[in-house]
């Protein structure tokens, strides 16, 4: 008898859970908001002229989409990132300082992932507008020369560490220059935000690389 009662309770629980699933306990309640958009007038001492309320999409339409500067920046930054990845990937087995080893490893995965995200952006634009295709970039700011890569491949221990920092710091400073160049232009706000993010993270890395360098020299 108790056994039978338990199985009734068990299956009833399953039934309740099934009801939950079907009635939205796990699918959530879905409702289209009936958006009532307002555009408040600016405060009294505003620097802007008062206006009589435009819809959100209007102000969006006024902003430019992807520009040639955007496409050029993204295409160049992908190449720039791949250089950092290439140098960082030489580190395992050659680098000697543990903090620098971890640092190089992080640069390799982060910049490879960022390059992928930027390539996805670029591919979307290129398939949309073939006219904004590949550009020739000439020499990139902070570009790492082929001979530096070759030399890095032959080094190990403190000599590799020294070369790594000596090449990566100017390389990152180059990324900052490229970001600032783009930020002085109009264009897609995604690209502007990425440019800021790249400038922020690479300036952090420059700081840390210089700290490691100072420590290695001091030691």
């Amino acid at each position: 008898m108790p056994r039978g009662a338990r199985s009734i309770a068990g299956v009833a629980l399953v039934a309740v859970l099934a009801a939950c699933t079907l009635s939205g306990c796990t699918t959530g309640e879905v409702d289209q908001p009936t958006a009532s958009f307002v555009t408040p007038s600016p405060p009294g001492d505003s620097t802007a002229a008062a206006s009589d309320g435009a819809a959100a999409s209007d102000s969006a339409g006024a902003e430019p989409g992807a520009t040639a500067a955007d496409v050029e920046f993204i295409a160049a930054m992908i190449e720039h990132h791949l250089q950092a990845v290439e140098l960082a990937e030489l580190a395992p087995g050659r680098v000697s300082d543990p903090e620098l080893a971890e640092f190089a490893d992080r640069i390799a995965v982060v910049q490879a992932a960022e390059a992928d995200a930027m390539r996805a952006w670029l591919d979307k634009r290129r398939s949309r507008d073939r006219a904004n295709g590949a550009h020739d970039h000439g020499v990139m700011a902070g570009e790492i020369s082929r001979s530096t890569f070759d030399r890095a491949a032959t080094l190990s221990g403190p000599a590799f560490d020294e070369l790594f920092i000596a090449a990566m710091v100017p390389h990152h400073r180059g990324a900052l220059e490229m970001a600032e160049e783009r930020l002085a232009e109009h264009g897609d706000s995604t690209v502007a935000r990425w440019a800021r993010a790249i400038a922020t993270s690479q300036s952090l890395e420059i700081d840390r690389l210089l700290e490691i360098e100072a420590r290695l020299r001091g030691g």
Binding site: P42, S46, A48, S51, L183
Partner: peptide
Amino acid sequence: DDSCEAARVPET
């Protein structure tokens, strides 16, 4: 500008 119709402009 500070209004609700402002557009994004380069930081320079």
